[in-house]
Design a binder for these strands. Structure first.
Lengths: 191, 191
DNA sequence: CGGTGTTGCAGAATATTGTTCTAGTGCACC
DNA sequence: GGTGCACTAGAACAATATTCTGCAACACCG
C-alpha cells in the first residue's frame, strides 16, 4: 500500500490550510501544491472535507501526545497546571500552522477523532483524579475543569492566531498559569 | 435608498449561517431563502464574504450593546465580573444562531468592525479603570484581562455551540463567574 | 412634459471550482 | 503470462460563484 500521494496532499494541506484557511484553499491549489493529479487525489480522499478530517486527526494527535508528555512530567498539581498552560501557548507558537488549523477552524467530527479524544481525556482525567484523591485538586466535571484550566490560554492563542493581538510574552504566559491555578483550586471552598 | 433586498438576504443568512455554517451555505440557498434574484444579490453585495462581514457587524453590534448594558448595570466590580460572565453564556443560549456564527466561524476583518471593537473596548476599559483606581481591580493589559475574564465562558460556549457538550447549567455558570473573579483579582498579589 | 441619470431587479451567460468516469501503468501473486 | 489491485492521469461532467446585459421604476432637470 503506497500512501505517498496521500501524504503529499496532507503536507500541502498543512501548509495551505494553516496559511490561508480551509475556505480559501481550492482543490486545485491543494493538488498542485502536492504535485498530484485529480485522479490520484480522489483515489485517496473522498473530497476536501476528508482532507480536513485526516489532517485534523494527524495534528491533534501530535498536540495531544505532547500535552500528555508535559502532563506526565509533572507530579505536583500546581506546577502541572501552570506547565500545561505554558505548554499550550508555546505549542501554538511553535506550530502556528497546525495551531491555526486546529483552533481557528470549525472542528470536523468522525469516529477516528472521537476515539482519539476519548483516549486523551481518559489520560488527563486519571492524572486529575490522582490528585483529587489527595485533596490537592477539586472534584470538578471534566468540562468545567478544562475551560477553567485552558480557556484563557486557548482564547489568547486564538486571538494571536487570528492576528488580532501581538504574540504573548513570558510574563503573560506565567500569569495565565497562576490564574488557572487560582481559578481551579478555589472552587472547592465556595461551591 | 431601498435596502429591502439587502435585508432579506441578511435575514436568510442569519438563519442559514447559524444553522449550517458559512461553508455549507451556498449562494443559491441564500438567495432562495431570501427570495432574491442573482442580480439583486450582486447589486447589494460583492459576494458571499461581504454578506459574512455585514452580518458579523450586525450581530456583534447587538452582542456588544447588550454586554455594555449589563456591565453598566453593575457598580460593584466583583458582581460585575460574574454578571458579565453569566451574561455571555446566557446570550449565547438565547441567541444560538447569532452566537454560533459569531463565535465558531472565522471572524472577518474590515474597517467597520475595527471601529465597533474600538468603541466597545474603550467602554469596557473605562469601567475597568474606574475600579482599578480604587484598588478593587488589578492593573492588567486589556488582552490578559479579557481572556481571564471571559476565556473559560467563551470556550464553554464554543463547545456547546459545536455540539460537543451539553448546555451549561446554572451552577456551572455561577462557578465560572466565581472563578473569573479569583483569576483576575489575585493577580496583583503574586506578580 | 421629454430627456436623462440612478437605483433596484431579473435572469441568461460565463468562469471557477469540485467530482465522477474511463483508461491506463506498474507490480505482486499465482 | 495472466489476473487482480493500488495507484495515476486527465477528459468529461456537475455544482457553484460571478459577470453581464437589459429592463422597469422613479427622481430630477431643462
Amino acid at each position: 500500500m503506497n500512501e505517498l500521494g496521500r501524504d503529499k496532499v496532507l503536507r500541502a494541506a498543512l501548509e495551505l490550510f494553516g496559511r490561508d484557511g480551509v475556505a480559501a484553499t481550492t482543490l486545485s491549489s491543494l493538488r498542485q501544491a502536492g504535485g498530484v493529479s485529480v485522479g490520484s487525489f480522489y483515489h485517496h480522499f473522498a473530497g476536501k472535507e476528508q482532507v480536513v478530517e485526516a489532517l485534523f486527526v494527524e495534528c491533534i494527535g501530535l498536540y495531544q501526545a505532547a500535552f500528555l508528555e508535559e502532563l506526565r512530567r509533572n507530579d505536583d498539581p500546581r506546577a502541572g497546571v501552570a506547565a500545561v498552560v505554558a505548554f499550550h501557548v508555546r505549542w501554538c507558537m511553535d506550530n502556528p500552522g497546525r495551531a491555526r488549523f486546529l483552533f481557528t477552524e470549525r472542528p470536523p467530527s468522525g469516529p477516528e477523532l472521537a476515539g482519539l479524544n476519548k483516549a486523551f481525556f481518559g489520560e488527563v482525567l486519571s492524572w486529575w483524579r490522582a490528585h483529587v484523591h489527595h485533596g490537592a485538586l477539586p472534584e470538578l466535571d471534566l468540562v468545567s475543569a478544562y475551560v477553567l484550566w485552558l480557556g484563557p490560554a486557548q482564547e489568547l492563542c486564538r486571538l494571536w492566531l487570528n492576528g488580532e493581538v501581538a504574540a504573548p510574552g513570558d510574563e503573560q504566559i506565567a500569569r495565565l498559569g497562576r490564574a488557572a491555578w487560582r481559578a481551579l483550586e478555589g472552587d472547592s471552598d465556595d461551591r
